[in-house]
Amino acid sequence: MTDFVNPLPELTTVSKPFYAAAKDRKLLIQRCRQCEQVIFYPKFCCPNCLGTDLDWFESRGRGKLYSYTVVHAAAPEAFKLAIPYAIGVVDLDEGARMLSWVVECDHDKLVCDMEVEVTFKDLNEEVALPMFRPVHA
């Protein structure tokens, strides 16, 4: 598990800046300059007004774990070495919802709505993935 490196995400005009920022330890969220709509996952145009003048702002990286699962067997071939791993859906305080991994945690102590914070996992020289860990008071 410690040696496991996730496959690279597909890098596009929209995803590349997101992952490059993650490499700089920033979690970015998109916002429409025209209508102020917060947009996530990042998109090519605003799903509210279809405007294309989109901007990024930095998330505080804090949120709540909406749901999670610990994968023991239902994994794609490329993830067999990562088993068991915890996938989570995180609601960021800024209003965006994202899929990621929950790391640095005891799988048995995960619970819905627990506080989590972002941490970053480097995949190569250009790309890091935002992941989440429990916030310990």
Binding site: P9, T69, I87, V111, C112, L129
Partner: peptide
């Protein structure tokens, strides 16, 4: 999503597992 989701090893089954977990909660 290839850009946002697949690199986390998600499948239909693990997605349903999260739906189930939230429903139970």
């Amino acid at each position: 999503h290839r850009e946002w989701e697949r690199h986390f090893g998600i499948t239909n089954e693990s997605m349903v597992a999260m739906i189930t977990r939230r429903y139970m909660h």
